[in-house]
Design a protein around this nucleic acid. Structure first.
Length: 671
DNA sequence: AATCCATGCAGCGGT
DNA sequence: CCGCTGCATGGATTC
């Protein structure tokens, strides 16, 4: 707490530069609606320098397994070089983890002890402060003051423990060794905050189960960090509380939705998608407009979109600092649930020659990026490791419900946790399920309508069903919705599961989009992980039918190639759901390789792609299949005239660069 | 200097 | 002759 006090000034100074410096009106509701979208915490004037804390999550990317292949005499040229580039597994993992930190949720490893409230976890139960939430279920009117007045959490947890709550993660050690002023204790002494909290509990008792609340943990350092950022003032605490509560609400909805989806999933481990971790950085995309002046500022664009891709913003400095941001967001919405979320235009665009170009780093990772796209109205926080306060740790709850782990607010030090708990009845669950379905239905209808209106715009417009929530269109008429990707399909895109073992050959039966959608329904969780993108050159869209792929990204995210003949690779067109059987291969080139995607002619023609347009390749982390989307940067009817270069080589290059500091550095330079 | 990658073009096979 | 395949070249960019 000393540090706390000492850093207060600093915190205040930085206040306006961080994600928490948000537009109060847009971020926090005057009151807490029952099911609010998570607030967009962008700031029109801020330029976040927040560097997300990277917390590696079992990153088993396809890339990590490649380096083991032994180079053959012929396979050559590329192999050794390949190894060099690829670096050690550790490096790869670290990079991967970094990339995932803000955007995606990798297949979670067995929950670390600290997450499950093991003895070594320095955490406290929220109940320490508030008492057990099951009081809610009895509709008791709490006296907030009574809650906070308790000096010894155990005093009012023990009795409750005797009851049926018995918080699983609450061990005596946790309770005994923690001070009261941690976790939700930051609310102590503030009856207004307590009131807010209890009111919220009452309002959401149908949606937040006892188990859920019980699993919410707050780490002391997290709270401290938040305090530093938000200030130790009453207002600051209030904001923190609201953020936490809203996040909890969001997560609950997401969890419900995901659960439904998972029930239909062919993947037994779908629940991993739920391993959402709240990433406060989601709020810190304030610099988005910085790099994309022609597009609406997030604040105005996603007024009601709770979870913005963290750091999609193009703040070069930030990018340079944080390799882990930028999702290949979808600027162009326009599709149905299936396509909309990946209307792959990377979210961030730089404008060159009047043509918007994706700012490379921006979509560096869908995984991270996936970061993030919230699905209104149930936008969920990116599952990524949440680290709003890079120097101090995470602020918000990090649900680990896959393993029955508690949601956690943790920090790097793994200190104190706070758990919340309440009891929800089956009836309440049913009700929220019903509401969920209802909302889905509405969402679906809205999306379809929007699609009709915007498809003709060639995806230049981000239809984003999220717009329905009040987002506005940009001055240019484009409703840029980063979240459109996740918005329509699912927010769990942020909770992507890495294509651990991407098949070398993926062939998928042709299936109509409508059929698929019908089959999978809106509940389908599409976990798309951004792999790479490429601004198409003349040679890419010519009649050669091949597209040169950026080497680094190809090696990192596509299957390792042992032979120059490459491998067949099925690419499902996100826009049409058509599966293109392409070939992924490489050419020995000098002492390196050139990676190609062949048999792209038809795809290019069908999508009307021209020089300057770009393709984005994702992997469906659930199915392991690859998905491709061609994105046109021209307005319909606008053809590239001679002399109008779509992009400088520099731009083009940067567009295909992502996920590594080097690339970020490049971008930084170019910006 | 090293590397990437856009593209030129030689070689080959099919018509 | 034409189109495709695959390699080589060289400009651009980064290290």
């Amino acid at each position: 707490m000393e540090a706390h006090a000492g850093e207060k000034d600093l915190w205040l100074k930085r206040d306006h530069e961080n994600f928490l410096d948000v537009n109060e009106a847009s971020v926090f509701y005057g009151d807490f609606p029952p099911l609010p979208d998570f607030p967009c915490m962008s700031s029109s004037s801020s330029s976040s320098s927040v560097t997300p804390v990277v917390k590696p999550i079992a990153a088993t990317s396809s890339s990590s397994s490649r380096a083991s292949s032994s180079p053959s005499a012929e396979e050559d040229t590329g192999q050794r070089d390949f190894q060099q580039i690829r670096g050690s597994d550790d490096q790869v993992k670290a990079e991967h983890a970094a990339l995932c930190s803000t955007a995606s949720m990798e297949i979670p490893p067995p929950p670390p002890p600290e997450y499950v409230g093991a003895g070594n976890v320095d955490c406290i139960d929220v109940m320490e402060t508030f008492g057990y939430m099951d009081l809610l279920d009895s509709n008791d009117i709490w006296d907030p003051s009574s809650v906070f007045q308790c000096e010894n959490p155990q005093e009012f947890t023990e009795d409750q423990q005797a009851a049926d709550m018995a918080p699983p993660q609450l061990d005596q050690q946790m309770l005994s060794e923690e001070e009261n002023d941690d976790g939700f204790n930051f609310l102590q002494g503030n009856s207004e905050l307590a009131t807010i909290f209890f009111e919220w509990l009452k309002q959401n008792k149908d949606y937040i189960s006892a188990k859920d609340m019980r699993n919410i943990k707050l780490k002391r350092s997290t709270i401290e960090s938040a305090s530093k950022r938000l200030g130790s003032t009453k207002e600051g605490k209030k904001q923190l509380l609201k953020l936490i509560l809203e996040w909890v609400e969001q997560f609950q909805l997401q969890k419900i939705r995901t659960t439904e989806s998972c029930q239909q999933s062919t993947f037994p481990s779908q629940e991993t998608a739920q391993n959402l971790e709240f990433n406060p950085n989601s709020f810190s995309h304030s610099n988005m407009s910085y790099i994309n002046p022609p597009y609406p500022h997030p604040t105005t664009c996603f007024p009601s979109t709770p979870w913005m891709p963290p750091q999609v913003a193009g703040d070069a400095a930030m990018m340079a600092q944080s390799p882990a941001f930028s999702p290949p967001m979808d600027c162009y919405g326009g599709g149905d649930s299936y396509t909309n979320y990946v209307h792959a235009a990377p979210l961030n665009y730089q404008v060159a020659n009047g043509i918007p170009y994706p700012a490379s780093a921006e979509y560096s990772s869908m995984e991270q990026a996936q970061p993030w796209v919230p699905m209104a109205p149930f936008a969920m926080p990116p599952p990524s490791q949440f680290s709003p306060f890079p120097d101090n740790g995470c602020l918000f709850p990090q649900p680990h419900n896959v393993y029955g782990n508690p949601y956690m607010l943790f920090d790097k030090n793994g200190e104190r946790l706070v758990k919340l708990g309440s009891l929800a009845t089956k009836e309440a669950r049913k009700k929220r399920m019903a509401r969920q379905r209802s909302l889905y239905s509405y969402h679906n209808r809205r999306n379809s309508n929007l699609n009709q209106n915007h498809d003709q715009l060639n995806d230049q417009h981000v239809v984003a069903d999220d717009c329905e929530n009040g987002s506005q269109e940009s001055p240019t008429g484009d409703c840029m919705y980063w979240s459109s990707i996740a918005s329509s399909a699912n927010s769990s895109m942020m909770a992507t599961v890495p294509p651990v073992d991407v098949p070398q050959q993926l062939n998928y039966p042709r299936q109509g989009a409508s059929d698929r959608r019908q089959q999978q329904g809106w509940k389908t969780e599409k976990n798309l992980k951004f792999l790479l993108q490429k601004v198409l050159k003349q040679s890419d869209v010519g009649n050669l039918g091949r597209i040169v792929l950026p080497k680094k990204e190809a090696e990192s995210h596509l299957p390792e190639l042992d032979s120059r003949d490459g491998i067949p690779i099925a690419m499902e067109d996100i826009g049409t759901s058509r599966v293109w059987n392409m070939r992924y291969r490489f050419w020995p080139n000098n002492k390196s390789r050139m990676y190609l995607l062949e048999n792209t002619g038809e795809f290019v023609r069908m999508n009307g792609l021209q020089e300057g347009d770009f393709i984005v390749i994702y992997s469906d982390t659930k199915c392991g299949k690859y998905m491709i989307r061609g994105v046109k940067v021209r307005q319909p009817g606008t053809k590239l005239e001679g002399g109008k270069k779509p992009a400088t080589r520099k731009n083009a290059r940067s567009l295909s660069i992502s996920r590594n500091s080097t690339s970020l550095a490049r971008i930084k330079q170019s910006v």
